[in-house]
Design a protein around this nucleic acid. Structure first.
Lengths: 123, 123
DNA sequence: TCAAACCATCACACATGTGTGAAGGTCAAA
DNA sequence: TTTGACCTTCACACATGTGTGATGGTTTGA
């Protein structure tokens, strides 16, 4: 598919799709006329990228972890260097911390909303 | 405590503490000489702010949700306007999405690491 | 054939979080 | 009293994700 379709199907501007490609997060082939041609699977991939960006991960890190997340687990042993492993472990831990922080605060918001609703209900 | 101590105890540069204050995330009183004076509780508060920033929330949103998170639940009904409620619900939902995304990807990283370890173990 | 709707690259711009350093005031200990 | 370690404000700078628009090529349908 071309960039317009991918843009529509992912709710991502063409500008950003080109940016993600420039950062190595997605790839495209080129048609004879120079237009980018995207694989169907990039729809999910782009959504995943957006989620991770929204959760605070920079493209640099996303690029490193993406290869580990492919559905048919392709074990990437060649570049499973100790440094890469260490990076993945570090990022996994940071993500766990983020989850804890978000959960904690989200639950507090929920409780607050419950309290407000109760207050408004009995008024 | 003064800014240097708060900085050390939170691992946050003085620059950023002033920035958070400028954005209304924290408050300080001033000593006679103009030095900022921080309440003990700001240590936790700053840590909380950093966690939320790291998880992708902008200061604008953090400022809005912080008042709901105070430990001794101070119900803030005066400004519990419908718009405020709607904002909180929206952010709560976004945080839930972020948690889901982070958890999903973190688990995939964990699985990948397990697979790599197994591979290296049997080699 | 021409207009509309695509696509390309490139450049400038902006918000946000953050670093760094200048210029100068305060305070405590030597 | 002077030095060093604090503090102040202010300004410039930078990386990153993102918007916007200029300029121009391609394709398709009236």
């Amino acid at each position: 598919m071309r960039i317009g379709e991918l843009s529509e199907r992912t709710g991502t501007s063409r500008r950003l799709l080109r940016y993600y490609e420039e950062r190595g997060l997605i790839v495209s082939t080129r048609c004879a006329n120079g237009y980018r041609d995207y694989d169907e699977r990039l729809v999910d991939r782009v959504l995943q990228i957006r989620g991770l960006l929204d959760a605070g991960l920079p493209t640099r890190i996303i690029k490193q972890i993406l290869p580990c997340l492919d559905k048919p687990r392709v074990i990437y042993f060649p570049d499973a260097t100790p440094e890469m492993i260490a990076t993945l472990e570090r990022e996994r831990d940071r993500m766990t911390e983020r989850v804890a922080c978000l959960t904690r605060n989200r639950d507090a918001i929920s409780e607050y909303l419950d309290a407000v609703r109760e207050y408004n209900g009995q008024r």
